[in-house]
Amino acid sequence: MKAVILAAGYGTRLQRDIEKDQSRHFEHLQGVAKPLLPVGDCALISHWLRALSHSACVQQVFVVTNAHYHQAFQLWAQDFPSVQVLNDGTRNNEERLGAVACLQLAVNHFAVDDDVIVIGGDTLFKEDFSLRKFTEYFAELQRKTEDANLVLTYKCKDEETAKYGILEVDSDYRVQRMKEKPLPSETHSRSACPCFYLFSRTTLPLLDVFLKEKETRPLEERDAPGNFLSWLIARRPVYVHEISGRFDVGNLASYTECDRYFKEQLKNPVLYLI
């Protein structure tokens, strides 16, 4: 099994917040890619590498970044022999390829023909998440059909449905449809879906099909990984694994909340995510 960490974003909202912050407490974070932000005792992305390095099922980790942050990620990766960093060639937010195209780039560049864990580089989870349990459930699904895919979900509040992709799931925990930022009245579900997926090797060729279909459409229709997931649901079985919640580092407020949790509330750092 391989892992791809999507880290090619430019963090424009966060950088804007840091520039506007009058306390000047966060000046040292100017120009730092979100996955490399210090969270607790290490960089955000290092929490994932610690867990993945303990997992016998993941042999290689590919980190897709951009030309602007490429050198910083190369320097970070020196501490992790299993990591290979891929530059998507873009230098600003307007040039960005989009998350799905970055995933496709990694799959094609490294000739990946294996099941792939896809991780949003600005996302962490609460302590009930276990990489071991997640991959064990995937293996169970794969014994039934090699086309099975597995994604995470957590319950959001009524007023939050309009912020996320919401999954509608049947009694077998199979996803029936995904609604993008629906009003609470437009769906009975409150199952939000973060960027953390386990795609089967048989699903990977569909990245090319999806992007070919969308090549003339605006970037917004092929940028977010949830767009591919929504398209995939009608073509491959997708199941959910439930967790209690996540940290999504999008702006300065969400970053400080995440960092505070890891410094003050994390109960078992040694086993976190494992």
Rank of each mutant, 00 (worst) to 15 (best):
V4P: 12
A8Y: 08
Y10F: 15
R13A: 14
L14H: 10
R16S: 14
E19F: 12
K20L: 07
R24K: 14
H25M: 12
H25Q: 14
G31D: 10
G31V: 10
A33F: 08
A33Y: 09
A33C: 08
L36P: 07
P38G: 11
P38V: 10
V39N: 03
C42H: 12
A43V: 01
I45H: 14
I45V: 15
H47L: 09
A51N: 06
A51M: 08
L52C: 10
L52M: 10
S55D: 11
V61Q: 01
F62G: 03
V63P: 00
T65S: 13
Y69P: 06
Q71D: 13
L75S: 03
D79P: 03
D79L: 12
V85S: 12
E95Y: 05
A99W: 09
A106F: 02
A106N: 05
F110Y: 15
V112L: 15
V116S: 00
F125G: 02
S130V: 06
T135G: 00
E136A: 13
F138L: 02
E140A: 14
R143N: 12
R143C: 13
R143W: 02
D147V: 11
A148Y: 04
D158W: 07
Y164C: 05
I166L: 05
I166Q: 02
L167W: 13
L167S: 06
V169S: 08
V169Q: 07
S171V: 07
S171R: 12
R174Y: 04
Q176C: 08
M178E: 02
L183W: 06
P184W: 00
T187P: 04
S189W: 02
C193R: 03
C193V: 13
L198A: 00
F199M: 12
S200Q: 12
S200V: 12
T203D: 07
L204M: 09
L211W: 08
K212M: 05
E213N: 11
R217K: 15
E221Y: 14
R222Q: 13
R222I: 06
A224W: 13
P225H: 12
N227K: 15
N227E: 14
I233M: 05
I233H: 06
A234D: 07
R235D: 11
Y239D: 10
H241L: 12
S244Y: 03
S244W: 05
F247H: 05
V249I: 15
V249T: 07
V249Q: 05
V249S: 08
G250M: 05
Y255D: 01
C258R: 10
R260G: 00
R260H: 06
P269D: 01
L271S: 11
L271A: 09
Y272L: 03
Y272P: 03
